[in-house]
Design a protein around this nucleic acid. Sequence first.
DNA 1: AGCGGTTGCTCATACGTATCACCAAATACG
DNA 2: CGTATTTGGTGATACGTATGAGCAACCGCT
Lengths: 333, 333
Amino acid sequence: MTGHDVAAHAGVSQSTVSLVLSGNPKARIADETRERVIEAARELGYRPNLLARGLVQRRSFALGIVVPELDNPFFTEVVSGAERVAGEAGYGVLLADSGQIPAAEHVMRLRERQVDGVILAGVPVETMPDEALADANVVVVDEPTGRYPGVASDATGAGRKAAEHLLSLGHRSLAFMGPADPSYTFRMRERGFVQALREAGCAITSPLLRRAPASVAGGDRAMAALLALEVPPTGLFCANDLMALGALKACAAAGVRVPSELSIVGCDDIEMARYVTPELTTVMVPARGLGARAARLLLLTLDGRDTGALSGKPLEVEFVSRQTTAPPPRREP
Amino acid sequence: MTGHDVAAHAGVSQSTVSLVLSGNPKARIADETRERVIEAARELGYRPNLLARGLVQRRSFALGIVVPELDNPFFTEVVSGAERVAGEAGYGVLLADSGQIPAAEHVMRLRERQVDGVILAGVPVETMPDEALADANVVVVDEPTGRYPGVASDATGAGRKAAEHLLSLGHRSLAFMGPADPSYTFRMRERGFVQALREAGCAITSPLLRRAPASVAGGDRAMAALLALEVPPTGLFCANDLMALGALKACAAAGVRVPSELSIVGCDDIEMARYVTPELTTVMVPARGLGARAARLLLLTLDGRDTGALSGKPLEVEFVSRQTTAPPPRREP
DNA sequence: AGCGGTTGCTCATACGTATCACCAAATACG
DNA sequence: CGTATTTGGTGATACGTATGAGCAACCGCT
């Protein structure tokens, strides 16, 4: 089932079929011919071979997206948002879940498939060999590089909002937990949090700054360490929701009541934040929006359109008050 | 950067380059020539154009996967499993998140991209027009069709195990919640549960059989309805974990204590099941395994290998005892 | 020396589409 | 009526790769 078959069936040449079905609308085709071709294509159920089209047009109308792990709901949402936008624009999406293979290799594979562009989310772009990204259309999610266009959320704002909320509740003994090898976004969340505390004259001390993998298990471990301190904090900000869920779990295991004994604020607002008990107070980061925006930015770039507008300002984050925060317990009850 | 460039650089023809770099190993190439070509390719950073290869070989070495929603962690895991297996075999993965567009349309788009096969997970295959799947390599996840090869989990077994557990704890007043338009798998989970109850002389009555979307919100609503009954059940089996999380949430909101007042069993064992409080007792369905197996089955089919072995027996499910089940409260305390 | 067989490579072509150059017929124009 | 212009289409080619046919050189054997 090729364009030639349709041509034969409609009594025209393959060129004409191509012009009718995918050529630009300014092609001069008689209405009657156009009808015949379209009808023939419909009857035969013709679908163009996008490999062939891609080969000659040097555009595959597909884009790749690389994430470190689909397990993390945050990245799932990014993918979901990007997929939607790409799909609506007629683009296909090639997914690469980093896993064992280094991200750079994934990018190379995607480029072999001639993707028109690549979205990188949560991968350490700075550590990738230059050649992998050389003259590729790349959009980086939530990790401003200065070298590639990107979309980001207001990460320092996220940390700041968490701090402001906890401070306003009266907390003064605050802790933070985040990954040991933080990505840009995690660094900024931490910085925003720490700076806001400092400005309020409430510096964070080293034992209250825990490093652990940004996962539920990591949060669990870090929380256990915090609870083992001589004077545990009364409030906690976690680099992401997964860690916060782990912290919540550790508290439940240790019999520490949230929020009456300890207030916890997460970050991302993954769906699960609403479904745990108590519901997690967090800072909403528009993951799906980031993915969608990344895709839009990429598509605009491919069309050679101006990208300044989209690339510019970070996406707003929003504090979401739920049930894991409350005023600190009174001292020496 | 094409094979011709490499050829020129190595002083051979493009054919030779092709033979060296991707031709079958039985091609007769002098060692010295082979070296030269490989070296030239390395120097130039040559990567073959898979579109061109796909066009001539009539195989794209890519497969498509269609899911109804990436939001559901179950499907995320299926995708993740399939992606891993495909990636290791050198296949690319085109993702289609159903969303607004009907699944059949997604399949057509994937086929335009010449995917070698398609994995369908959670899409209503029976309602798809035949032409969409005509002479395509299809593997259906968890929905035996009789027309297409598929991989499935032991869904009746899942329902049965949930029933057996609750019965063995002493429950006699049991409820079920599942979607109103159940897929095959959901129907079988329900059937296994109901049958096991019946065999134990403990039939389930109609008001204890709730229909709601298989989501957290749906579970929440259904649970609220159950709690409003004159005699609420002491035990509950949910068609999937998302519903169970919703039920848990509704209980928390209504002040019903789990598991002392009500036992809840979910199904799937999504990651979150471990992280809610109390931890969710559930039946583990190997989602990642299903995805991996679907991919393997598809790849074998593409190689023209025998597929009987893989297609055969459903994957085992496993009861996972956690914290949401306990003996029923004594009557009239 | 003569000859079949093997080795090592190249030539030409096909895959299915888009697109440029070109052409015949029809039409406009003075 | 002769010529410029437009209309509506076709033919040929290119995209980058794989691959069967073919070919020259060399080998082993009698």
